[in-house]
């Protein structure tokens, strides 16, 4: 849960150009989001006009951030939706992999990183912290990152299934894709992986991934000829 005092603690000093208010269960920040490296000789680095809505049930619900100054093109290549909404990160991935998921950590993590990335992308055409592929493909990369695999590992979903399962069965096909039984291949590896990562988060990520794939199939089905 997030109350207004904590919302202010995260933003009022570091972001003095944001106006903060609460409307029912929604905390609102509107104004200039300043990119700054603290007390710098040159002052702020850059600023973006934003509007951010955060539910008091944070971090259950992802904060909604919009760039409202028209500085960033509202285009998928900039990780922006047509209505100015910013896709700062894969929320479930950040929640699952961050040591600190407080609202302050979000402001100093994904939120700041997003606008710092936009600043750098504008100047150099590169995303300094990388970028996730759009849609379910990006989610699969996030799953790989969560499991500590190479981000391009296309078997991440099968790994996730093995971690999310109630128990491991030796007769399953090994998720690594070797065609061998699990008991004859990576059984020990998965036992140790299941000890390392949180099963509930794995279930959550897997559910979201499968749901995304299903919806993408329905929504982006090729029209009949």
């Amino acid at each position: 849960m997030l109350d207004f005092a904590e919302f202010e603690r995260a933003l009022a000093f570091r972001q003095p150009k944001l106006r903060l208010r609460q409307t029912g269960e929604i905390l609102v920040a509107k104004g200039e989001f300043v990119l700054s490296d603290g007390a710098s000789l040159e002052g702020r680095l850059d600023a973006f006009d934003i509007e951010m809505l955060v539910a008091t049930s944070y971090p259950e619900v992802e904060p909604l951030v919009r760039e409202v100054g028209g500085r960033i093109p509202y285009h998928p290549d900039w990780h922006m939706y047509a209505n100015g909404r910013c896709c700062t990160c894969i929320w479930e991935e950040w929640c699952a992999t961050s040591a600190d998921t407080s609202f302050k950590a979000f402001c100093e993590g994904p939120l700041r990183n997003f606008f710092l990335s936009q600043h750098v992308f504008e100047k150099t055409g590169e995303w300094p912290f990388g970028e996730r592929a759009h849609g379910a493909a990006g989610y699969l990369q996030a799953a790989a990152n969560f499991l500590g695999l190479d981000e391009d590992d296309t078997h991440a979903d099968r790994y996730l299934q093995a971690v999310a399962a109630q128990s491991l069965k030796g007769h399953w096909d090994c998720p690594c894709g070797s065609g061998r039984r699990l008991r004859d291949c990576h059984y020990a590896h998965f036992v140790s992986l299941r000890e390392r990562v949180d099963r509930n988060q794995a279930i959550h990520l897997l559910t979201r991934l499968l749901e995304l794939r299903r919806q993408e199939r329905v929504n982006f089905r090729k029209p009949p000829r």
Binding site: D37, P76, S117, V120, G130
Partner: peptide, 24 residues
């Protein structure tokens, strides 16, 4: 300066990559 800020984030291991939910 931006590069220095990026490096600091990387050192802390708190980098995060933007995404896009196609459904949105």
């Amino acid at each position: 300066r931006a590069q220095v800020m990026v490096e600091r984030v990387r050192e802390r291991g708190t980098g995060s990559a933007p995404w896009l939910n196609l459904l949105n």
